[in-house]
């Protein structure tokens, strides 16, 4: 890839021969890829091609079986989930994982407050933190629902709160695992708008999607995975029109 030679500073994320095996299944198999800073990169591929596993590896939710992840120029052989925000990375989950039995408000507040144990014991919510939480909830349009328990929301609303929770982290890189799956068209437009705003604010977005129209609309670059390996990467149209990608998707 040409972008690798352009210099390490330009990369938000890089993987070098990372692997993850589940028994005999090679979910991610010696995968090397580079994701440039800023802009939107989409990850596509057939079911079982390792997209979600890749995001889980990058965010430390699953341990690496081999290889190295480079986040913001820092090489990591072990990605610890609780250290990923320090590396400027956060994520959303494919199956929405909110804190179900606490309020929407607390779901946002919990990522805005003190991380260290003892200061957290003595910290009460500061007005500035409350303002941030309010701004986030207004941005995703969930301010009216702030006092509802997360489990009381509809699926689309839960997706929005989860995106809000990621936004509240205010990091450089966002990994979004299928942000559009299961949403009806109006919600899709809302999520698209939020992602466009994030891109305009200079964040790096990496998202997984099966919807090629959305991928074409939002992505600056595209990565195609197949059976845990890299099939193609680069600008959207040439990659999507290449023969091998069409073949993989048609299952030929």
């Amino acid at each position: 890839m040409t972008s690798t030679q352009a210099g390490q500073q330009e990369l938000a994320l890089e993987t070098r021969e990372i692997s993850k095996h589940f028994g005999a299944v090679r979910a991610v198999d010696e995968l090397s890829l580079a994701i440039p800073r800023q802009g939107t990169t989409s990850i596509v591929g057939p079911n079982g091609s390792g997209k979600s596993t890749l995001v889980n590896l990058l965010s430390g939710v699953l341990p690496l079986d081999g290889g190295m992840v480079i986040i913001e120029g820092e090489g990591l052989r072990v990605v610890k989930a609780h250290e990923t925000p320090d590396h400027g990375l956060t994520r959303t989950f494919q199956e929405v994982r909110l804190f179900d039995q606490i309020t929407v408000w607390d779901n946002i507040m919990v990522v805005l407050t003190e991380r260290r144990l003892f200061p957290a014991l003595f910290e009460r919510a500061k007005p500035s933190t409350r303002q941030k939480a309010q701004a986030i909830l207004e941005q995703v349009g969930m301010w009216d629902k702030r006092d509802s328990l997360a489990q009381e929301l509809s699926y689309g609303q839960r997706k929005l709160v989860e995106i809000g929770r990621a936004l509240a982290m205010n990091v450089n890189t966002y990994l979004m695992d299928e942000p559009f799956a299961g949403l009806f068209p109006q919600m899709i437009e809302r999520v698209k708008d939020i992602m466009k705003q994030m891109r305009a604010d200079g964040h790096t977005i990496v998202f997984i999607s099966h919807n090629m129209d959305i991928v074409r609309e939002l992505s600056d670059r595209i990565i195609v995975l197949d059976s845990g390996t890299l099939l193609a990467a680069g600008d959207v149209e040439p990659v999507l029109n290449s023969e091998e990608v069409i073949e993989a998707y048609l299952g030929a």
Partner: peptide, 14 residues
């Protein structure tokens, strides 16, 4: 309370 709801998710947030 967040740990009670989803321990793995709260780790991701630092």
């Amino acid at each position: 309370t967040a740990i009670r709801e989803d321990e793995q998710a709260i780790e991701v947030f630092g």
